[in-house]
Write a protein that binds this DNA or RNA. Structure first.
Lengths: 215, 215
DNA sequence: GTCTATACTAAGATAGAC
DNA sequence: GTCTATCTTAGTATAGAC
């Protein structure tokens, strides 16, 4: 059994440490991180409890000591992603300055959140709505999209953003560009600040040189 | 059995029509379209043959008359997506004109392809590499990404594209913006030309007004 | 081209010992 | 906190009748 247990359960020497700080075997947090990694590698639905057990180096049934179900693992992960993104939106609401400054703050904040919570955000962005847990998370995410759309509309009226594009398309394409991070960002290859600079530059000013050549 | 068969199998009156044109029951093409729709709704792995059977209005076993396996359905769909995208790349290779003109051609071609073959492209973009079929399709797609990256590098040397962003980031973010279409494009809400215009505008020139306001 | 019936395998989850 | 053993359900796929 247990074909590819790469990770040895971090058995603790120092127990008796006020309940949820030590880690005799796994605690819920460390277990969650391993599971989310496997979810993202194969997709949530393609991941069986057996595969999780293999990655954890324990048996299927041992997982149920930490969580009630596979869905609870998903729920815990999605909550982390959503609460992190909520904080970004809250920060954006309170921001002041020019349109560009406020937009830049939002973009950079979102990118930081996506990078720092990448495993959880990845899971969030790939939901299909197959369970109540997924549906609720998708609703929370949808609310953020709508809020950004309203923000774009406002910025257009204020005159900071071009008005030849609909708020819908501005929103969807902007999120599309940023969210693609979960599909290709790798800490070894990509510097977070450089990535954020590139996203801001592309979104604000595009990729062509102002004095475009005519060959 | 068969709880929500919305689609009645299109039983044909006019048979004997040269093998693969008529449709007594389903032919492979019409069956594929229904199945791919279900795959995209729930995700490939979360879709069982039973769900396909329900959507088709036939039984599970009847599906095996048309295809050897669930994986063959996936393979047929991915082939359609990839061959369509291959044609876009081929067209881009032969294009002439300014950097902007050639870039615009590529963007518009890709967007047309994504929209016109949306179900198949959607499936392609969501692969996790869980089977040989998926891995091979991902390789073909990766080749296209690399080709675009080389194109960006070339355009930077020629002077048409800003050089403060790496080809990698230009490529990934551009594809991210465009590919997001599969997640939100809806024919009833979005006009294809308007969507393409918006993508070109954002990618080439960004979203801010040239004469940005300082409030 | 589709059906019923069924073989076979793996899934998520639980009980109770250690 | 993890184990073995097991329950139950659902999965893909096949055989053979109509």
């Amino acid at each position: 059994m247990r074909k590819e247990s790469t990770m040895t359960p971090p058995v603790g020497q120092d127990r008796e440490q006020a309940a949820r700080r030590g880690r005799p075997g796994y605690d819920q947090e460390s277990l969650l991180m391993v599971c989310v990694g496997v979810f993202n590698e194969h997709g949530f639905d393609a991941t069986s409890m057996g595969m999780l057990a293999d990655a954890l180096g324990i048996t299927k049934s041992a997982i149920y000591h930490h969580v009630k179900s596979k869905d609870e693992l998903l729920s815990l992960s999605l909550d982390r992603a959503l609460s992190r993104l909520d904080r970004v939106m809250e920060q954006a609401r309170q921001a002041e300055g020019t349109t560009r400054e406020r937009f830049e703050l939002l973009v950079r904040g979102t990118i930081r959140a996506v990078i720092e919570e990448k495993p959880h955000v990845t899971l969030l962005l790939r939901l299909r709505g197959n369970s109540p847990v997924e549906l609720e998370a998708m609703n929370r995410r949808r609310a953020m999209t709508r809020e950004l759309e309203a923000r774009f509309e406002h910025a257009q009226r204020e005159g900071g953003v071009r008005t030849d594009l609909s708020p819908r398309h501005l929103t969807r394409f902007s999120f599309g560009l940023i969210n693609s991070l979960v599909e290709w960002y790798r800490p070894e290859r990509d510097d977070p600040d450089q990535v954020a600079d590139a996203a801001v530059a592309m979104l604000c000013d595009g990729i062509l040189l102002p004095n475009g050549n005519d060959e």
